[in-house]
């Protein structure tokens, strides 16, 4: 079983190497990034600790995937696979608990500790086979699959947004719309198999334009209930609402061109740094956007045009 953890350690190092930077630097960057994000989260959001609980829960669900759990169960048996689950949960705790304790979020800490230590004693997590309805059908598959995967989050945000309207809390409603757009941004983070690009009839430039157009139209459809809610019930802040919506949509566009600029690899650290610089100094996007589009077209060319 110790070999399993040594193997996981090797895999982790390989992932970090793939980011294209030295391993110690990647680890340091990861710790600093998480530190900065969590500080910002705790400072800006009233219920930050519970968002951290949601994040930890999402990672736990990923770790409890049926294929992975079945593999561990068959290789190591019931007891040892539970032990592995506990060790992984403890590693997860190391990541989240210091921040929660520092911000005196003891209830959230309790929930995370309970989730992590009870998880291995429950059955393997099975994703539902119930086919949920979707507005998006075949075009584009990112929204169709993403919407179904996160439908509970979408509904929860809808409820929170309704409460925000009821208690006249503009910021909360705005956060709901931002999270919806951020979620749509996440639909495009995964790198698809080359087959799902190859099958398209278009040339690379038309393919990329179509991807961006579909993403824009569908993100509008996806966030429309929240945007309308903000414009109708908080009409005095319509300019801020539209600006935030525009930022969210622009981020999705940036995600698409960044993804194909790195294709067939995942977005690497240097690209993430360039994007981060762009968000800090937006005028840099005048250079970044054409550069990323050029790189995307260069990567798509061998699959679609060659």
């Amino acid at each position: 079983m110790h070999y399993y953890f040594r193997l996981q350690h090797k895999r982790l190092l390989r992932y970090l190497k793939e980011l294209g930077v030295p391993v110690p630097l990647a680890l340091l960057a990861l710790v600093c990034f998480w530190g900065a994000v969590s500080t910002l989260l705790y400072e800006r959001l009233e219920w930050a600790a519970y968002w951290v609980v949601v994040l930890a829960g999402t990672i736990l669900i990923k770790l409890s995937g049926v294929e992975r759990s079945t593999f561990l169960f068959h290789v190591f048996g019931k007891q040892k696979s539970r032990y592995i689950g506990l060790v992984e949960a403890a590693a997860l705790l190391l990541f989240f608990v210091p921040g929660l304790v520092l911000h005196q979020a003891y209830a959230a800490t309790g929930i995370i500790v309970a989730m992590c230590f009870l998880r291995p004693f429950f059955g393997r997590w099975r994703s539902t086979s119930i086919v949920g309805p979707s507005f998006f059908r075949k075009r584009p598959f990112e929204f169709l699959a993403g919407y179904r995967k996160t439908i509970l989050l979408y509904l929860a945000l809808g409820i929170v947004c309704s409460i925000a309207v009821w208690v006249n809390n503009y910021n909360l409603a705005l956060v709901c719309m931002s999270v919806v757009l951020l979620n749509a941004y996440g639909f495009y983070t995964a790198t698809e198999e080359a087959y799902f690009i190859w099958i398209f009839k278009q040339e690379s430039s038309s393919f990329l334009a179509k991807k961006c157009r579909d993403a824009f139209l569908n993100s509008l459809l996806y966030s429309l209930p929240f945007l309308v809610c903000l414009l109708v019930f908080f009409s005095a802040n319509f300019d801020t609402s539209l600006f935030v919506w525009f930022l969210g949509s622009a981020a999705i566009f940036l995600m698409i061109i960044s993804k194909y600029a790195a294709y067939p690899l995942s977005i690497n650290l240097s690209q993430a740094v360039v994007l981060g610089l762009g968000f800090s100094f937006p005028f840099l996007f005048i250079i970044i956007i054409p550069l990323f589009i050029k790189k995307s077209l260069r990567n798509l060319y061998p699959i679609l045009d060659d």
């Binding site: 059908r137 075949k138 075009r139 598959f141 169709l144 799902f196 099958i199 398209f200 009839k201």
Partner: peptide, 11 residues
């Protein structure tokens, strides 16, 4: 939807 996606891709 998988079939529809491929048909859409090939117009």
């Amino acid at each position: 939807e998988y079939i529809e996606l491929l048909l859409y891709a090939r117009e």
